[in-house]
């Protein structure tokens, strides 16, 4: 279980970093950021995993629950991820309006 999840996390991280380094289309960069965020969220949620634990809604009987703190952190991170994605997309729209392209190498004064 843990090996599968950590492999997924590492794979997604690798894909996202590679994409961030090689892609030049701004929308694709935003997508790479989202993939990276998903990898991080998966790692955070897995950090609170307890073998055989139930969802942290306290019932009557004593039982093992998965840790609720990473869930709350992940919830916060999801909202912030959505906000930052919206901001990035708004800036992409703005750049397209003013510079006429969303490809980095065609946006003038950005060459380097």
């Amino acid at each position: 279980m843990g090996a599968i999840i950590m492999t997924t996390v590492l794979g997604l991280t690798g894909i996202a970093i590679y994409g961030l380094l090689t892609r030049r289309h701004l929308i694709r960069l935003v997508i790479c950021f989202n993939v990276l965020e998903i990898a991080v969220l998966l790692a955070i949620v897995y950090a609170g995993f307890v073998e055989g634990g139930q969802a942290p809604i306290v019932g009557g009987a004593e039982a093992a629950y998965v840790s609720a703190l990473p869930h709350a952190v992940a919830l916060t991170a999801i909202v912030i991820a959505a906000s930052s994605t919206a901001l990035m997309l708004a800036y992409v729209v703005r750049i397209y309006r003013t510079r006429g392209s969303v490809r980095i190498e065609r946006v003038r004064r950005w060459r380097g």
Binding site: V9, L10, T13, G14, I17, Y18, L21, T22
Partner: peptide, 12 residues
């Protein structure tokens, strides 16, 4: 870029 990503994942 490929080398860097693979190295990163390898570290993990």
């Amino acid at each position: 870029a490929l080398l860097f990503s693979v190295a990163l994942v390898g570290c993990g």
